[in-house]
Design a protein around this nucleic acid. Sequence first.
DNA 1: TGCTTTAGCCTGTATATACAACCTGTCTTG
DNA 2: CAAGACAGGTTGTATATACAGGCTAAAGCA
Lengths: 246, 246
Amino acid sequence: MSALPRYQQLKQQIIGQISRGELKPRDRVPSENDLVGSAGVSRMTANRALRELNDEGYVERVAGVGTFVADLQSASHVLEVRNIADEIALRGHRHSATVITQQNERAADEMAKSLRIDRGAPVFHLLLVHRENDVPIQLEDRFVVASFAPDCLKQDFCRQTPSAWLSAIAPLQEAEHKVRAAMPSKETQKHLQLGDHEPCLVVIRRTWSDGRPVSFARLYHPGSRFELTGHYTPPGIRKSTPDQAP
Amino acid sequence: MSALPRYQQLKQQIIGQISRGELKPRDRVPSENDLVGSAGVSRMTANRALRELNDEGYVERVAGVGTFVADLQSASHVLEVRNIADEIALRGHRHSATVITQQNERAADEMAKSLRIDRGAPVFHLLLVHRENDVPIQLEDRFVVASFAPDCLKQDFCRQTPSAWLSAIAPLQEAEHKVRAAMPSKETQKHLQLGDHEPCLVVIRRTWSDGRPVSFARLYHPGSRFELTGHYTPPGIRKSTPDQAP
DNA sequence: TGCTTTAGCCTGTATATACAACCTGTCTTG
DNA sequence: CAAGACAGGTTGTATATACAGGCTAAAGCA
């Protein structure tokens, strides 16, 4: 169990104060020299922590003035993090899931890097098939940081999806997505009951809580019976009527 | 006229070498100590330049081994409606386009419905291939409401993309997206220089201005060398670090 | 009072130095 | 020949120091 670097600890400490409400938007954040005194680090280390928090949008720095908690005003984003069970329910259909794998593993190189943990650190590996009216609609291949969710192996993910459970045990703060098209592996093809040469839409999602990645998931969808939808409105514009798209 | 900071100059120098092809993916990038000698900076300055290039996805660093040019797997932001030329420029690459079709047509049933115009009403049909460093990266199949953009046929879309031109002549107010995976048609396969059984990532986009649809586009991307990225932050929380995922 | 100067704090950058951890290839040894 | 020890290069982090530049408020002056 290697300790996080000092500048990362500093970042988390400040992120924690922001997310707990101890520091509110526009509040002044301790200056680099304050942190030299209070945290016992050198100014360059404090500088790196604050600079990265600035790059990441947590705080705003003004040369000659100070560092302040950023105004939280996130743009309306597309591709919201939704629970697939909710999506299906919204369509008036029935969701069901089958758990294929639910076990402890050790993080391989790439996974460790993605989740920002040590190589070989324990992670929980989940593999499940989601169905809409008994038709396979998503193969969920998920890794969860073990220390974040110790009870992961005790959960019955047929009843509550991993996504729903994770956002229940800790507030989800952030999600990154990547979307790509790819041909499925033999196994994925089987689980999703795909025909030959039928592509998959793969959503790769990394979710964060308290400034740390907690889960990494690959979500495979059959290209022939699935699509993502999104909506974008530039800042400062009032919406009109989006109805059915082509 | 203030000069750029030294670490920024270093970054640009390396980005330039990458985008000019002097450094190719997986090539070794000069180490921090090399830069100390060749660029005459301190190691910490070289470190900052390389570290930021790593955070931005240009290079990949492996402790104990070295720094290497990242495999370029193009990424594009789903959320924001962006001009592909800008996306490519942001990556330090060169954008080029070829216009295949640019003509007046009459709206077919489905298209008329999508664009909320009468069946048979005039629309402009554009078909163009976008390239990133001469590699086809997007086939744009677009229909524009004729009454909205009468000068559409006079434009040279090799110089300015349809997306850029449209948002210049009228403020874009809304965009709907759909994303799906599909196998390309023979013609799409040819234009994108795709191999057999190689899937496409298709973004279908309808843009609105003044409460009316003005344009409908299908954007085909090669599944093997393209991905969409997105970022989601629930209300009340501010962003953290998006870096490269596996 | 009203304007100017100045002192002081803050961030931004740059350097020199140091040590830890990691990886690879080589050399030694059994 | 194979396994292990080792050296050298590389990144990752941390510190101390220095100077430039921006901003603010207090001090000084008219």
